[in-house]
Each structure stands twice: as structure tokens, then as C-alpha cells.
Design a protein around this nucleic acid. Structure first.
Length: 737
DNA sequence: ACGATTTAGATTTTT
DNA sequence: TCTAAATCGT
């Protein structure tokens, strides 16, 4: 059975899927059948009896990816798949940490703070320290602390080694207090779920040993997006058996702003000199036009692993280009194109995705789709679990298990209103911080700090939460949740039939309760306690939702589109400053990340890709003139056009960029753009010994030429940067002499 | 204590 | 433009 599946793979895929022992890296290009290889390898290990299911650990980044992999494995090996420790880094580690919580001074019912909770906690600390929150923005401090954690820099290390100015000094101070608060709240933030694994392994070699031996085979998906902490944990876990297989694509590393270090994948072979490398270079998803167009863009990045992604599918349509006068017209043209394609190709709404760089862009597109009565769905944005009413409900549940959870207390102590206002709250918090007590302990002994009306209000709240604790202990997850939500008074507050929005929220809370019920009744879940439910939703995002089979056009950011594919894809807002985003223009690293993002966007398309831009766009309430994205210039023009290739070759559609200093004066004309100058499509007369200029590497000398004429490559020696092999077709080389 | 009004700031987000 | 936090007024 497994063998049969293996037969269906290409040579590279089969080699990777049957890799058994020792370290290996699988470079899996977009659409290269990565998940298939991964699942088959797991099944292969099991069928060869090299490991039992619970000895494999497979880590992914999204719940969705984990779920998909589990589903596919189940079809291969049956219900054994259920015992595979497979999941996201955060969920797998959170389970380990709950088991080993004692060793870290936590209880197993610790809360998981989301980023809102973290920021709110940091905001409180900044206020307490009487700092100017304009100069010391809580959000920036939070991001810096997060970064420190991702690089495993502890508060004391941060103080000792990372203070270079007043800001870092403050960050250090806040970091210390923040970490103490978390511990006192019996809470971990997302980063702690990783950091504490390292802390655990460092402080308890016996436990490290235990897990090293427990998991004989370690597999990591999307390795290009791992951060330093994840890298260290993986290295420690794999140190005994060295059965570590990582899968990734450096060209799709788009989360460095979250601490991902692309070096992890670039250096894997240095970390494990014996590592085998498998390259999955055949793209089964997209037409060759799309694959090659995407290649022509990504070629402009310096930092890459060498590989040659190709497609054997037919050429298909050329890449469409839409230019709108304004973002409104851009959206209308996109919608027109969707309608046209639907008719011509007999497609459904589901076959289309519109991708954008920033969430703010969705609005215009939504309007245009609504006007055309085309059903659509916006992914991301305000997720269900980030809604206020849901966060309130979750806070009550969290408190039932962990009353020390300070952020949850603050959230619901006066919601619904029970007469505990700011003054009272300030008093309680002050009592807690001055006496180094936990907020919950202060609330339990509020007689010492309060009197009269505010005391009785706080006392009643304490009694309420205590009753919730009992409910959580003594009944099933669903019954407890139902009781807690009802007794909290939330539902009465929201149930206002006259107020449409309030009723909407009421419905959401009811839906949330249904979710709890579903969770408790789902036989797939091994543990169905309230605690397990909370753990799951803390690490859950909207992107994980299974989508019903409704027929709609998908709207999402490019980030959210990673791993997905659509028949026809529109990438909108291809303008300098928007994509690439202006904040990433100042250094090469971040510009390359934008380019990888562009690569990800383009490779989502199976049959038809359309890029679009607007000449004018409203930004922050005022009209701005734009210039086309450099990524448009980077797409080899021979792949861009409207209908047929020959038509495109006669009529190039890439607009010429005006001189940068004239951009504000650029005329707004509806006329088609001027024919482009030679962008390197035809290979200029370059010979060995010529000095050439490359727009990124500067000047260099051609040392060698090879490859067939249509694929001519030049090896150029750039002083100080070494020899680079450049495809003349793509590299814009200018002969200097 | 709570709602109304003003002001500042913003851009990507697997968990 | 739009949201969220800060401030103001009752």
C-alpha cells in the first residue's frame, strides 16, 4: 500500500520520502508536493517498524497544516495516526509544559496570554513606572521583549548585554517586571511556550534526556520560518538520535519580522555536516508561465539556496496586468476580470483569490465585489476569538482554572458592570504590587484594602469566581462553560433585541458555547477538559477554520495565503511603497523579504495570475500618486500580456518608471504605458572579459559564459562579493566597456 | 462610574 | 480613512 504510493512519486520525492535515519533537509519549492512527501515518509517509517507512532514528533506552524497532515496520514495508516505527536510548535510544547509545569514554578493550569494580553500588561507596567508612553510605546517594548525571547535572551542577560541607550534600558526594566508578572499570574505568553522549553531542558537534564529518547524521529515543516528558540529546541531534542528532517523553502521565508531567521535553513547543512539534501524542484501546481515568471522575480534576491524550480505543465495563459486610475477602479477591473474568467472558463467563485499586502486594502475590493453581487470571504482581519465578547467569555473560563490570571481579572472584574471602577481597581493593583501579592490574593482579602460599597462589590466578584472554580472542577467542560457564561451576567448584558450589534455579539457568545459543546463531544479529542479546550483556542486562529463548501471569492493578505492554491489569483496594489511596503525599502534584507512575499503570492496561482496596480490611491485619508512596483519590472516581460504570447511580445505592457524625483509630477494619463526599454529579455552582447554593471552587485568582470543561447548564464566576478552566476535573461546586466 | 468627544497613529502576524 | 486610547463632562 505504501509502496504503491511511493511509486507515484518522482525520484527526488521518493528519495526524500524513504529517507530513514540521520539528518536531512528537504528543499521543497512551491507546489512541489511537500505534504505528500512528508506524510508518506511518516507512514514509511511506521510501516517499516522503525518507530511507533508516539516516537515521532512532527512540528508545523499552523494548526491547519497539522490537521491536514494528520488527515492524510490517517488515510495511509488508519487510526494509529491519532497518537502521533503532531501539531504546531506551540501546541506540542504547551502540552509538554503543562506536564512539566512544576519544574518551572507553574501549575499545569497556567494561562496562555495572547498578544493583546501581553501588550496590556506592558502598558500597565509602563504606566506604573511613570514613563512617557509616547517615548516608550508599549507596543514597541512588547515587540522588543518578544524579539529578545525569540533569541533566548533572558531579562538579566538583556540588562547585562543589550542596554545601549535609554530605550533599551527601559525595555530591560519592563522586561524584568513583565516576566515576574507573568509568573505571578501563572501565565505564559506565546514566546514563553518556546523559551520555557529551553529553560526546562537546561535546568533539568533528566527531562531533556527523557524527551530526547522519547522522540526518536523529529520532523519540522516550514523550517525557513523557525526562530532561534525553535532552532535550539529542535537541536536539543535531536541531539541523541540526530534523526531530524527539516522541510522548507528559503524563497518562502516571510516571517522574519516575527523573529524567524532564514539562516536556520541556509545553515542546516553546516549544523549537520552529514545531512542529506533533497531538492523537490518540480512544481506540480502552476503553469510553466507562472513558475518562470515567479522565478524571474525571486532571482533578484542575493540570499538564496541554489535551485531550479520548473513546471512541466503547459504554458497556459500569460500573466495579466491591470492598471487602474484609482484603487476603486483597480478593484472594479479585478471584478470585471473575475466575471469574464468565470464565463470564459466556467469557473466558480471559489477558484479565485485576491491577495493584498495590507489588510486595509480589503475594503475597496469588498465594496466592488458587493456591488457586483459576487459572494466573497475576507480571511484574517478580526478573528472570531479576538472579538471583545469572545475574549470576555474566554477570560471567565480562564479564571475558573487559573484565578491568578491578572489580565483576565482586569478584563472582566467590571464586565458586566458590577460597580468596580477605576479607583477601586487602582487600589487593588497597588496593594498587589506594593506587597508583592497576586491580584487574586488581594481580591480574596479585599477587606484589608477596601471598605463599604466597593468592598462588597469585590467580595461578590471573588465569590463568583470561586463558584466558577468549583464548576470547572466538578462538571464537564461544556456544562461548566455554560454555567460560567450564564452566571457571569454577560448574556443578559448582550441580550438587547433592539440593538442589532448587541444581538450579534450575543449570538457570537452562543456560538462560542456551541464550540465548547462540539469540542467536548468530538471523539477525536483525546482530552476533552475545559483546560484542553482553552489550550486549543489560545493557539487557534481564524485561518484554521475549516471552510464550508460555500462558493465565494477569497480575500486575504499574502501572508495568510501561504500554503494555499487557487485556479486564478489576483495580486493587487503592486505599487512602490505599498508592495514593497515603504518601511522595508531602506535595507536589502527586508526588501528581499518583500520579494519572497511576491514570490509566495505569484506561486499561489495554478492557471491564471493577474497583477494589478492603481495610479492613485487614498492612503490615510489623502490621495497619493503611486509608481508601479519594482516587482512588476522584475517579472520577465515575455510572460506578461493579455491573451496570447505572440501578441504580448509585440506589445510590452510594463510601464516605464519615471525618474524617482519626478514621481509627484507624474501625469495621470489613461493612455497605455510606453513600450519598455530592453529589460534584459534579449541577451545583450556580453563576452568574457567585459566589465558589466548589475544594479545590485555593482561592477564586475565576466569570467565565463555558458548554457544554451536562450538560457545563457554569465559567471561574473564582482570585487568583494565573489563570483555570481547570472542568467542573462533575468539579470539586467549593462556592459560598461 | 460611565458615556461622549477628541486626538493620535497606523502598514505584514503561522502561535 | 479608521480605530483605539485618552480626556472630558455629567
Amino acid at each position: 500500500m505504501i509502496d504503491e504510493y511511493l511509486e507515484g512519486l518522482n525520484a527526488a520525492q521518493r528519495a526524500a520520502a524513504t529517507h530513514t535515519d540521520g539528518p536531512a533537509i528537504i528543499i521543497a519549492g512551491a507546489g512541489s508536493g511537500k505534504t505528500r512527501v512528508l506524510t508518506l515518509r511518516l507512514a514509511y517509517l511506521l510501516s517499516r517498524r522503525l518507530a511507533s507512532p508516539f516516537q515521532l514528533m512532527a512540528l508545523t506552524f499552523t494548526n491547519k497544516a497539522a490537521k491536514e497532515m494528520r488527515r492524510r496520514i490517517e488515510t495511509l495508516i488508519g487510526s494509529d495516526a491519532r497518537s502521533l505527536p503532531m501539531g504546531t510548535f506551540h501546541s506540542v510544547f504547551s502540552r509538554v509544559l503543562r506536564i512539566e509545569a512544576d519544574a518551572l514554578g507553574y501549575t499545569s493550569s497556567f494561562s496562555i496570554y495572547d498578544e493583546e494580553d501581553s501588550e496590556s500588561q506592558i502598558r500597565t507596567i509602563v504606566k506604573e513606572l511613570n514613563l512617557d508612553d509616547k517615548r516608550f510605546k508599549p507596543r514597541v517594548i512588547k515587540n522588543n521583549i518578544s524579539k529578545a525571547k525569540n533569541f533566548l535572551v533572558s531579562p538579566s542577560e538583556f540588562s547585562a548585554r543589550h542596554i545601549i541607550d535609554e530605550f533599551t534600558e527601559t525595555t530591560a526594566k519592563v522586561y524584568h517586571i513583565y516576566q515576574n508578572r507573568l509568573q505571578r499570574s501563572n501565565a505564559m505568553d506565546f514566546d514563553d511556550l518556546l523559551v520555557n522549553m529551553v529553560v526546562l531542558f537546561n535546568s533539568r537534564p533528566d527531562l531533556l534526556h527523557k524527551y530526547q529518547h522519547k522522540y526518536r524521529y523529529l520532523m519540522i515543516d516550514e523550517y525557513q520560518d523557525t526562530n532561534h528558540a525553535q532552532y535550539v529546541i529542535a537541536k536539543k531534542l535531536a541531539a541523541v538520535h540526530e534523526n531530524i528532517v527539516v522541510v522548507g523553502d528559503d524563497s518562502q521565508s516571510i516571517y522574519s519580522f516575527r523573529g524567524a531567521t532564514i539562516e536556520n535553513i541556509l545553515n542546516f547543512s553546516k549544523d549537520y555536516p552529514d545531512a542529506k539534501t533533497y531538492k523537490l524542484e518540480q512544481n506540480y501546481r502552476s503553469t510553466s508561465t507562472i513558475v518562470e515568471a515567479a522565478n524571474s522575480v525571486i532571482e533578484n534576491n542575493v540570499k538564496r539556496l541554489p535551485k531550479n524550480i520548473f513546471s512541466l505543465k503547459e504554458e497556459g495563459d500569460l500573466i495579466g496586468l491591470i492598471v487602474g486610475e484609482t484603487e476603486v477602479q483597480e478593484a472594479e477591473k479585478v471584478v470585471d476580470s473575475i466575471r469574464e474568467q468565470k464565463l470564459r472558463r466556467n469557473l466558480n467563485n471559489k477558484d479565485f483569490a485576491i491577495l493584498y499586502r495590507t489588510n486595509a486594502q480589503s475594503r475597496t475590493l469588498e465594496d466592488a465585489l458587493r456591488r457586483a453581487s459576487i459572494p466573497y470571504k475576507v480571511f484574517g482581519g478580526m478573528s472570531f476569538y479576538r472579538r471583545k465578547e469572545i475574549k470576555d467569555a474566554v477570560a471567565y473560563l480562564r479564571l475558573a482554572l487559573n484565578p491568578y490570571d491578572e489580565e483576565s481579572i482586569k478584563r472582566v472584574i467590571n464586565y458586566p458592570a458590577r460597580g468596580i471602577g477605576n479607583t477601586t481597581m487602582e487600589r487593588l493593583l497597588q496593594a498587589a504590587y506594593e506587597n508583592n501579592l497576586r491580584l487574586w490574593d488581594v481580591i480574596l482579602r479585599s477587606d484589608r484594602y477596601l471598605s463599604g460599597r466597593s468592598w462588597s462589590a469585590v467580595n461578590a466578584f471573588a465569590a463568583l469566581i470561586t463558584s466558577f472554580q468549583n464548576a470547572a472542577l466538578n462538571t464537564s467542560a461544556y456544562l461548566a462553560a455554560e454555567y460560567i457564561i450564564k452566571a457571569s451576567g454577560m448574556l443578559e448584558d448582550l441580550h438587547q433585541p433592539k440593538d442589532f450589534e448587541m444581538m450579534d455579539r450575543y449570538e457570537n457568545v452562543m456560538e462560542f458555547l456551541d464550540g465548547v459543546k462540539e469540542f467536548t463531544e468530538n471523539p477525536d479529542n483525546e482530552v476533552r477538559s475545559l483546560s484542553a479546550f482553552l489550550n486549543e483556542i489560545a493557539l487557534y486562529t481564524d485561518a484554521d477554520k475549516d471552510e464550508e463548501s460555500d462558493d465565494y471569492v477569497s480575500l486575504m493578505t499574502i501572508h495568510a495565503s501561504k500554503g494555499l492554491e487557487f485556479h486564478s489569483v489576483f495580486v493587487v496594489g503592486m505599487e512602490e511603497g505599498l508592495f514593497p511596503l515603504s518601511m522595508s525599502l531602506d535595507n536589502r534584507e527586508s526588501l528581499e523579504e518583500e520579494r519572497r512575499l511576491c514570490y509566495v503570492a505569484m506561486t499561489r496561482a495554478k492557471e491564471k495570475l493577474t497583477l494589478s496596480q492603481a495610479k492613485r490611491r487614498m492612503r490615510y485619508g489623502n490621495l497619493e500618486f503611486t509608481e508601479p512596483s519594482r516587482f512588476l519590472d522584475e517579472v520577465n516581460p515575455k510572460y506578461i500580456g493579455t491573451k496570447t504570447r505572440s501578441a504580448a511580445e509585440k506589445k510590452p505592457t510594463i510601464p516605464v518608471e519615471p525618474p524617482r524625483n519626478l514621481k509627484a509630477l507624474k501625469p495621470i494619463s489613461a493612455a497605455a504605458t510606453a513600450p519598455s526599454e530592453n529589460l534584459g529579455a534579449n541577451t545583450p552582447d556580453i563576452a568574457v572579459g567585459h566589465t558589466v554593471e548589475h544594479d545590485r552587485f555593482g561592477r564586475g568582470i565576466v569570467v565565463r559564459l555558458d548554457g544554451p543561447p536562450e538560457d545563457r548564464r554569465a559567471v561574473v566576478d564582482f570585487p568583494g562579493r565573489g563570483e555570481k552566476t547570472l542568467l542573462l535573461r533575468y539579470a539586467k546586466l549593462v556592459v560598461v566597456q
